[in-house]
């Protein structure tokens, strides 16, 4: 079987794959990085979104061999070595932007890419439109939008600390 070599979450990895193996299968089954999920088979749901060379992509719609030499980041690679969460992860927790957690890894990876590519800042409507490739069945997106809005303020250096959710 052919071998594919790439960097995943900062570590070089090399694995034998079939030519038809998808990146998500390499991540989940060979590398046992099961944080990346598969929620559909028509590239609609976005549960499988990871970063490849800095861009969010659906890892169910990329052959593992297409990622030869690529830098891949998955949900497992977001937090700092000391466990400090990425601001987007922290915002999702603060704003209750997840319930069952299944769409969450893809949602977080998409959201980070969305915010990074829009340094000018995103309106609520732009955030909603920017999530077109990710489905959530639990939250109604309300809190996801709030979380991304809060995280973008931290990521763009507008504020030092994540704005806290309103107390009840």
């Amino acid at each position: 079987m052919p071998r594919v070599s790439l960097t995943v979450n900062g570590k070089p990895v090399s694995a034998e794959v079939e030519d038809r193996t998808l990146l998500v299968e390499l991540l989940r089954e060979t590398l046992r990085l099961t944080g990346t999920h598969v929620g559909c088979d028509t590239s609609q749901c976005g549960a499988c979104v990871v970063h490849v060379n800095g861009d969010s992509i659906k890892s169910c719609t990329l052959l593992a061999r297409q990622a030869e030499g690529a830098e891949v980041v998955t949900i497992e690679g977001l937090a700092a070595a000391d466990g400090t969460l990425h601001p987007m992860q922290e915002a999702f927790r603060e704003y209750h932007a997840l319930q069952c957690g299944f769409c969450t890894p893809g949602m977080v990876m998409s959201a980070i890419d969305l915010v990074k590519k829009n340094p000018q800042g995103l309106s609520e409507q732009e955030i909603r439109e920017g999530l077109e490739g990710n489905l959530c069945r639990c939250t109604g997106y309300h809190n996801i939008v709030k979380a991304i809005d809060a995280a973008q303020q931290v990521m763009h250096g507008k504020v030092k600390e994540l704005p806290r959710a309103a107390a009840e």
Binding site: S43, G46, V49, D55, S56, I57, K58, T61, L62, S110, D113, L114, K117, G130, E132, G133, N134
Partner: peptide
Amino acid sequence: IGDNQVRNR
């Protein structure tokens, strides 16, 4: 076209 992920590929 499509979504962000489609546009990236």
